[in-house]
């Protein structure tokens, strides 16, 4: 089928099987390998992307489902890596192996956009669908709090 959607702010038209998994379309056909596959069953969150402003799991979506939709992957969040959540991940030491990082950042950036003043517990909830095996989540929570502060400052400025 001919699939048309907005991907990272650009209109995209691709020919694909309608039941192709969205994650395969993104990674294999479009070369956007920032969206990771850690389980294929919706349990790890490494494939978290944003569809119509909400976080979804690319491993449990069919390509046809994003027809006409606005899709954002980690590559499109801020290509230069200067989104406050991205910067906070670096600054707070929330990145280790980095495999869960794109999904974590997609979850947190989406959450913080709607909840500018989160308690640490709320940040844990916001990433409760993203498993990390390296960090113990401590520095991810730190990064979430730092990013919230930065976002607020940016908003004020």
């Amino acid at each position: 089928m001919k699939l048309e959607f907005t991907l990272n702010s650009a209109k995209v038209t691709v020919e694909t099987a309608p039941d192709r998994r969205l994650i395969d379309l993104l990674r294999e056909d479009l070369g956007l390998t920032g969206t990771k596959e850690g389980c294929g069953t919706g349990e790890c969150g490494a494939c978290t992307i944003r569809v119509q402003g909400e976080t979804k799991l690319a491993c449990l979506m069919l390509a046809a489902q994003v027809q006409g939709c606005d899709v954002v992957t980690i590559e499109g969040l801020d290509p230069a890596g200067h989104h406050p959540v991205q910067e906070a991940f670096t600054g707070s030491g929330a990145v280790q192996c980095g495999f869960c990082t794109p999904g974590m950042i997609m979850s947190l950036s989406t959450y913080l956009a709607a909840h500018p003043d989160p308690a640490p517990e709320k940040i844990r909830e916001a990433v409760s669908g993203n498993l990390c095996r390296c960090t113990g989540y401590q520095k991810i929570v730190d990064a979430g709090l730092a990013a919230a502060r930065a976002l607020k400052e940016a908003h004020r400025g």
Binding site: G45, E54, T55, K56, L57, M61, S107, S128, G129, N130
Partner: peptide, 9 residues
């Protein structure tokens, strides 16, 4: 139920 992503979907 599930996780934020699962609840969105």
């Amino acid at each position: 139920l599930g996780s934020p992503q699962i609840r969105n979907m």
